[in-house]
Amino acid sequence: MRIAVAYDCLFPFSKGGGERQYRVFAEEFAAAGHQVTYLTRKQWDSAAPQVDGLDIEVISTERELYDAQGNRKLGPAVKFATGLFAHLARNRGRYDAVLVSATPATNVPAARAALLGTRTVLAVDWLEVWRPEQWLEYSGPVAGRVANVIQWLAVKSSSLASCHSQLNARRLVELRLRSAPIVSPGLIDGQGGGEPSLTAGEPPTVVYVGRHIPDKRVEALPAAIAHARKSIPDLKCTIFGEGQTSAAIQAEIARLGLQEVIATPGFVDQAVLDEGMRSAAVLVNPSQREGYGLVVVESCALGTPVVLVNGEDNASVELVEDGVNGKVAASVRPEVLGEAIVEVVSAGAPLRKTTAEWFDEARRTKTVRAAAAQILGRIEQAVAKA
């Protein structure tokens, strides 16, 4: 088959779970013998990169996706959707199937409109499905309502849809998706960053890995660390990454006098990051919104248990089994999150052993390649019927 994969980011020029996911999807489709074109946004200064098995085509040149608060801007989303519509309209009949990311949702009605009247199968992959209240909080009263309507239109345009958590599957059904969604078995790459460590380094260290944006609530970590140190006085913390809330995080560290306790090295090489996670006593992610939570898997691959925070928009909690590979805290209040940290750090080697065992089982059945194969199978069936 001739398949297009459409997403406005390409790994490693943009880093994140979605970026890695769609690149692997495209590579797996190509490995299965199909001709694959990756439609994306220009994120490099020279010629388009060469990727084995893939044709990379630029359909948008917008460089900045996010505003100062770390939110996706409407302009780049509209420009990418416009570029996607134009490309597919010019190339009607070129593709047997198009897999389009619903992040942002503007991609979906654009692709559907361009493909009307063709036999091309449109598959839509949902990284996240948002509640109306989320859109209002994220984009404001006007743009939020518009975005919510666009998401509704995108769901109605998704005759073949996939997602990666039960949370998002339920939301697609509630929005009256036209067919049962494909719920992927997982997004684990099956490799990890090396062998897991069954003992944590000394002194015990908490790590955070990811962008610093409001939804991640990283600024809640310093107070939780201060509380946990009442029980574990030598506890340290390393907060990897950068972003819009970095200044607020530094201010909170200073307010609590934790400059010698909490390190903030920013973004680092993958090898440094892997070693930081492997030697840590626990990885903590206080995020209120996750579509999947790849960092949870990456931590467990290294034997390091996790602490997450429960929330109605946090699908990553589906990856945690309390007492097996970590704990889910009820809130980010310092005493609640701090006590969860104490519990996991104090569990020591036995919890690290079950964490490594959890990952060892998961990487055999819940891989990103298994998800790609599942989606490809449904696409092949749909194309055969078209």
Rank of each mutant, 00 (worst) to 15 (best):
P265W: 02
V295N: 09
F359Y: 13
E242P: 03
E339R: 12
V324H: 11
G303V: 00
Q259Y: 12
V297D: 09
E312I: 11
V342M: 11
A280V: 10
V344S: 03
A280S: 13
E242W: 09
R255W: 15
A271L: 03
I249K: 01
E252D: 11
T367L: 00
V309E: 05
V295A: 10
T354F: 14
A248R: 15
V296F: 09
L258C: 03
C300F: 05
A356C: 00
A330Y: 04
E260I: 05
G276C: 07
I262P: 07
L258E: 08
V282W: 00
F359P: 06
R364G: 10
P286N: 06
V309S: 02
A362S: 11
T367D: 05
L319I: 14
P305M: 12
R352I: 01
T264R: 15
F267K: 13
P334R: 02
A356H: 06
Q244N: 08
T365G: 02
K353S: 10
L351T: 13
V306P: 02
L302F: 05
Q244C: 15
L273M: 14
G293A: 15
T304P: 08
V272W: 07
E357T: 13
G293I: 15
S299W: 03
F359R: 07
E343A: 10
E242F: 12
D274P: 02
A248W: 14
L256P: 10
A349F: 04
L258N: 04
E343I: 05
G243Q: 06
C237I: 07
V272N: 09
P350K: 03
L319D: 09
